[in-house]
């Protein structure tokens, strides 16, 4: 499924870019996520998705598949393996920064693939769940940029 988010932060594109490409910080923004290791290009960790009756944990890794520091465009690929045989999750996140007055507009396009049980038993709920989780992720990033913390 494809999910689109767009937000504007009161920081210039370079500052914003620096934060968004710090995988440890960005990874930590995903609800329930713990980044266990990260370097410039890859990160590993787990995500505990806890939502009402559902609690599923994915363990996975991510990396840049494309990173253009000039154009402020990056594509991050992440794959996670669900514990308890829950199937896998994969996400390809494309970020594009665009100057917006004194700030920066961040366009995030996420191609999210969830396989196995959560998709099979979802009553379509996984779509809503994913949307919500990504919304929280984006909100977190937004907050970090707004607060100016996490900046290297």
């Amino acid at each position: 499924m494809q999910l689109e988010h767009s937000f504007v932060v009161p920081a210039d594109p370079d500052t914003t870019w620096a934060l968004l490409t710090d995988l440890k910080t960005v990874g930590g923004c995903f609800p329930g996520a713990t980044v266990t290791e990260a370097d410039a290009e890859t990160f590993a960790g787990n995500v505990k998705v806890k939502l009402g009756p559902i609690a599923v944990t994915y363990e996975g890794t991510g990396r840049f598949v494309e990173r253009d520091d000039e154009a402020h465009r990056a594509v991050i690929d992440g794959t996670g393996k669900g514990l308890r045989g829950l199937g896998n999750a994969g996400a390809q996140v494309t970020m594009q920064l665009v100057p917006d007055g004194p700030g920066t507009r961040v366009d995030v396009l996420t191609e999210l693939n969830i396989t196995g049980k959560p998709a099979q038993f979802g009553r379509g709920v996984m779509q809503s769940v994913s949307d919500k989780l990504l919304g929280q992720f984006v909100g977190c990033v937004e907050n970090k940029l707004a607060a100016g913390d996490g900046t290297p």
Partner: peptide, 9 residues
């Protein structure tokens, strides 16, 4: 949910 093991409290 527990039968599906979508949660394991």
């Amino acid at each position: 949910v527990l039968r599906m093991r979508l949660n394991a409290p």
